[in-house]
Amino acid sequence: MPEALLDITAVTAGYVPDLPILREVSLLAHEGKLTVIIGPNGAGKSTLIKAVAGLLNVDTGRICFEGRDVTGLSPDQLTRNGIAYVPQTDNVFRTMTIQQNLELALSAHRDPLDRVTVLFDRFPVLKDKRREKAGSLSGGQRQFLAVAMALAVEPRLILMDEPSAGLSPKASEEVLDHVKGLTQRGVSVLLVEQNVKQALKRGDHCYVLAEGRNQIDGPAQDLLEDPALGRIYLGGERRGAA
């Protein structure tokens, strides 16, 4: 097995000291793959992804990216290191226009003007509305803008927190298809989803969290049929708790 792109080892983290939300969670994400994290409400999925994005202090454990220890780096340093993050809500600057949002996301890029053109070609919807305030976009369009902003600096890994939340079934399929499409272009994705079926259908490998701990993991397709999954969601017995 090749070395993992992202290697999370026994991470314990939380928002306030002595009150960990995550307890020794470990996870591997491989290059070019769509790695999915699922789990019931309050499992710590968003917390895990925020810890990787540098928005949360990691109490113990280690996060390695491309073989380098990136634990404790600030969000902007992580962005420069090739990890992008798309938050679940408030993921665009509402008071700025779409063009301004992209330019801001590009401020670390060598050739921002060129890159804006590339992004507009890939997201024609955004190009048409580039002078409009991001706050006026529909839910689906806003997700696309958020994804475009994350892609701006050509990251090697994108962390996504429930991109389908609050979208219509059609829009959420569209967004998830796009996420899948990213991995085919060589960008690896770590995806948190509530929409279990849709996510597992597209994912490569899947981790299930509950109560802040690893439960089970395996190829996404296999998990879709695993009866253990239902038990975890229904709060039944656990397997493989760390």
Partner: peptide, 14 residues
């Protein structure tokens, strides 16, 4: 402790 905290924090992401 625990889960409720996470919930409020997640909402407060601004």
């Amino acid at each position: 402790p625990g889960q409720n905290r996470e919930k409020t924090q997640a909402e407060g992401f601004t």
